[in-house]
Design a binder for these strands. Structure first.
Lengths: 224, 224
DNA sequence: CCAAAAGTGTTACGATTACACCCATGT
DNA sequence: ACATGGGTGTAATCGTAACACTTTTGG
C-alpha cells in the first residue's frame, strides 16, 4: 500500500538525507601564468593526495554561501565571484560515506591572498596549470578539468573575469589576462574591437601613470 | 578549540545532512509543437500549482539514477538521455524543510508514452511551451527557464537530440525538430550542409517508404 | 632623445545566408 | 499524370583574422 513513493518525495520527511559539499577550483592569475589552488589535509583517506579546497554545506547556508565560506577560510578573501560548474554524485566518489558535491570555480589574484594553514589543512599551494600533480584525491581531477573548460567558455563569451583585475585597468592588462588564461596569443587591434563592441566597459578618461605610452584606464559599466 | 571545521569537512560524520531531489524538465516534441511535462500532486504546499516532475534521491543511487527513476515512474520510458542543468539551493525554496535540487532535462516523444496517474500525482499533462501556466510551484519557473535555454544551447552546438527521433531518420525530420525546438525557420540547403559537416551522421542508403520523394535515411555514426 | 608600449584602419579571407530548379515517389 | 516533398549549387553578405605605422610617455 505504501508503494507510491516515486514522485514528489520532496515533501516527505522520512527520505534519505545526504552530505553535501562544495569543491572549488580557485584559479589564480599571476602576470603571465595561470594557477590552481590545491590543498593537502591532515586526515582522511586522501591524506597524501592533493585536493581542491572544499567543505560541507551547513544548515543555514546555500551552496554559494558555502563556497564563499570555504574560500574565505582559505584565502581570507571575500566578495569573489563564483560560477557553478555542476554536481557530482557517483556512489563511490567518497570512500567512506555517501557525499555529493557541487563544483564551483573562482578567479583570484594570488598576490592579494597570502596562504595560511588553517583547520585540517596540512599544505596549501598554487600549482601551475600545466604542472598539475597527478592523481588528485576523490574525483577532483575530473572536477578540475570540467571547471577549467567551463571557465574558459564563460570568459570567451561572457567576459567573466571575476576579481582578477583592479577596478580600473588598461586594455593591455585585460588582453594579457585573456592570453594567459586561454593560452593563445591575440591580435591587439582585433581584441580591442571585440571587447569594446561588447559594450561592457567604459573609458574613465584617466591614464595609468608609471607605464610608457600612457594607456587609458577602463572600468566595467554599471549594470542596468 | 573546535573552531577548525572550515575545510574538508567531507570526512566528518557530524555534518549537516540535507534532502536532495532531482527535478526534470521533460520536453516533448510532437510533430511541429514543443511541450513540457508538468504535474500536480495531491499533497503538500503546492497542491494547486503545476510542478516539474521530481523526486528525492535515495541511498544507493546517483542523481542520474534518480532522474531516471522519476521519469520511468511517470512515463514508463527508459534509457532516455539526460543533461544536467544546475543545482538550486536557496534556503526557502521549499516552504517546509531544507531541500536542494539538481535540475535535469530530457527530450522525449510524448506519443510513445501514455501518461498515467501514479503515486501522489493528481494531474499530469503536456503543456505547449508558449502556454506554460503561470506560477509554477517552488522555484520551478526558474528551473524551467534555465533548462530551456540550456537545452537549446546543447542542441545547437552538440546535436543533442535525445531520443526524439527513430534510429533511422530523414534530414527533413531532423530539420523539423530543430525548427520546432528553436522556434525558427531554417533554410533546407544550409541546414543539410551544416549538419553533414558535423560528421556525426551517416547515410544508410535506405529510403524511407510511404513518403513522396523517397528521402534517404540517416543514423548516428558509431562513436569512436 | 631614445626605448617601450599605446593606439588606430583597411584589406583579405572564410563562414554564413539567401535563393530556385529538377528529380523521385505516392496516390 | 500530377502533386508532394526530396535533393542539389552558386553568388552576396557578414563577421573574423591579418597586418604596420604613428603617438605618447618614462627613463
Amino acid at each position: 500500500m505504501e508503494k507510491e513513493q516515486l514522485q514528489h518525495i520532496q515533501v516527505k520527511s522520512d527520505s534519505f538525507e545526504c552530505s553535501v559539499t562544495t569543491d572549488i577550483a580557485v584559479f589564480g592569475y599571476v602576470e603571465g601564468s595561470f594557477k590552481i589552488l590545491l590543498t593537502k589535509r591532515t586526515v582522511g583517506d586522501f591524506k597524501n593526495r592533493w585536493l581542491l579546497p572544499g567543505g560541507a554545506m551547513e544548515d543555514k547556508e546555500t551552496l554559494e554561501d558555502c563556497a564563499e565560506k570555504v574560500l574565505f577560510a582559505l584565502t581570507g578573501f571575500k566578495d569573489i565571484h563564483f560560477e557553478q560548474v555542476r554536481a557530482y554524485s557517483a556512489l563511490l566518489r567518497h570512500p567512506i560515506k555517501r557525499v555529493i558535491t557541487i563544483c564551483f570555480y573562482a578567479l583570484v589574484k594570488p598576490e592579494n591572498h597570502p596562504l595560511a594553514l588553517k583547520g585540517d589543512v596540512e599544505e596549501i599551494a598554487w600549482f601551475d596549470m600545466d604542472r598539475i600533480p597527478e592523481n588528485l584525491g576523490f574525483d577532483h581531477g575530473q572536477l578540475l578539468r570540467d571547471a577549467h573548460t567551463h571557465m574558459k567558455d564563460n570568459l570567451k563569451d561572457k567576459l567573466v573575469v571575476g576579481e582578477l583585475l583592479p577596478q580600473k585597468f588598461t586594455l593591455a592588462e585585460l588582453q594579457n589576462l585573456y592570453e594567459t588564461i586561454l593560452g593563445t596569443r591575440l591580435d591587439k587591434r582585433n581584441f580591442r574591437k571585440r571587447i569594446l563592441q561588447m559594450d561592457l566597459l567604459e573609458n574613465t578618461n584617466e591614464k595609468k601613470i608609471g607605464v610608457k605610452g600612457g594607456p587609458l584606464l577602463y572600468r566595467y559599466k554599471k549594470k542596468r
